[in-house]
């Protein structure tokens, strides 16, 4: 490919785009753009331009992936790798070891379909898990609350017992204050923890739903490995 010039490069690019099933409009648009780059770079720089653009097959696959017209593309051909990677030789190495992957747009669709198809499995499981967590939380709050109530009532009972048997009464008052204090101490962080957990959970659910169903207008990073 070292000596490839404009005509050869463009004909390979066209052939690969046609094979990829891209619409005629899109093909012409892309070809015009790259033809223009060649012409503007100058006749004497055709080889250099071809080298800068990299392997035409790879470029074609990248254009196809961007248009989402094909479900399956080689993962190395995606945008993520094309950037910061103007060395054509480095690209060649990864291209031969290409594994097949689903284009991002289709991946999202596939995920939604998969989620819907398997809903009879995960829906009951999720509901079950959620109710279990909810039950445990409520039980814990109830236990702690009852410790507090037990403390208060022991304190009251102790106050009355003070009249009949003062030493026992003082003991009961002490136990009551201890229990009430214990319940009070545990109750607040427990509630805060439960509320925090619930917030986190619903936040996560919201984010996940948005990620799956939301539009692709977020600024995803083009390259992770620059």
């Amino acid at each position: 490919m070292g000596t490839m010039r404009r005509l050869e490069y463009m004909s390979i690019l066209r052939q690969k785009l046609v094979e990829g099933g891209l619409s005629n409009d899109e093909i012409n648009d892309a070809l015009e753009f790259y033809e223009e780059l060649f012409l503007d770079a100058g006749y004497e720089n055709e080889e250099k331009t071809a080298q800068n653009l990299g392997d035409p097959e790879k470029l074609a696959a990248q254009i196809l992936a961007e248009n989402g017209s094909v479900g399956f593309v080689r993962s190395e051909y995606k945008m993520d790798d094309a950037i910061n990677n103007s060395d054509p030789n480095a690209q060649k190495d990864t291209a031969s070891a290409g594994s097949y992957d689903i284009a991002p747009d289709n991946r999202k669709k596939a995920l939604i379909i998969l989620a819907i198809c398997t809903c009879f499995i995960w829906f009951p499981i999720t509901i079950g898990l959620l109710s279990a967590v909810f039950a445990i939380t409520v039980a814990m709050v109830a236990v702690v609350f009852s410790i507090f109530i037990a403390g208060v009532s022991t304190f009251v009972a102790g106050a009355f017992t003070c009249v009949t048997a003062p030493p026992v009464g003082v003991l009961l008052i002490g136990v009551g204050v201890f229990l009430a204090g214990l319940g009070f101490l545990i109750f607040k962080p427990l509630c805060r923890g439960a509320i925090g957990l619930a917030k986190k959970f619903f936040g996560w659910v919201g984010k996940t739903v948005r990620n799956i169903f939301g539009g692709g207008n977020s600024n995803k990073a083009v390259s992770e490995n620059g």
């Binding site: 790259y34 800068n52 961007e66």
Partner: peptide, 8 residues
Amino acid sequence: VSESTLYP
């Protein structure tokens, strides 16, 4: 950036 990045 590669020239091929700018078309998309």
